[in-house]
Amino acid sequence: MTEPLLRVTGLRKAFGAVVATDGLHLDVMPGEVHALIGPNGAGKTTLVAQLAGEIAPDDGRIDFAGADITRLSMHARTRRGLARSFQITSLFPRFTALENVALAVQARAGHAFRFWRPAWRDPTLLEPAHAVLARLGLDLHADRPASTLSHGEQRQLEIAVALATQPRLLLLDEPMAGLGPEDSAWMVELLGELRGEVAMLLIEHDMDAVFTLADRITVLVYGRALASGTPDAIRADPEVRRAYLGDGAEAGAEAV
């Protein structure tokens, strides 16, 4: 059996009396699209923050690609291949789309104690950045400042920046947030194309997207994994239905 790419063991994080992550276990296999769903307040945001290295867990450990990364800083995790996209678009508004991506390429290219040559004329940064933009259909907007892009384009760029770090695992925090139906469909298609190339941990409220994309779904309730399994198994799980999916979501799931 292959080793999981990401393994979360007994993770725990409390804020005062509120236990946001409560002894969570979670695996993501190489190349797998693993969706994480759960009602508001289930602890998804806190989990993402711990996986990304923004907040430290109280207990438990996180292994990534065979190494313990529980205490590793955010940038060190990214360099090991754990990249994230943000729920609220987080870009460099004054930089162009191309420069946004080139900054991510540069992070891979070693230290930045280089003071002389202009970075934005360096083909070793710009060519990979162009390739990523082209792949996401953003190449027409390469020279536009990120702040002038539409919301949908900014969401695409958000993914492009994460991809440019050459991740082995993409931590996608609600990539469909605020997207209209058309852009959502486009995003699902894009993430589908990335399947197999990069593993994904997908946190998403859009049940259509989740059931279309996921190889496996984990349902998070009160900081614990209530259930974990294939989309069909999750759909059939009576406990999940009771705790989370409800009638509206069920109808959505059936439409898949």
């Binding site: 800083s73 540069q106 930045a112 280089r114 003071f115 202009p118």
Partner: peptide
């Protein structure tokens, strides 16, 4: 004028605009 356009300079400016994202893409800012 050279430094601010160098790799060092763009990391510095990126960190000014969005330090969290800079760290998230792998820069020890």
């Amino acid at each position: 004028s050279r430094v601010i356009h160098s790799r060092f300079g763009v990391v510095l400016r990126g960190s000014r605009d969005n330090d969290r994202r800079m760290r998230a893409i792998g820069h020890p800012t």
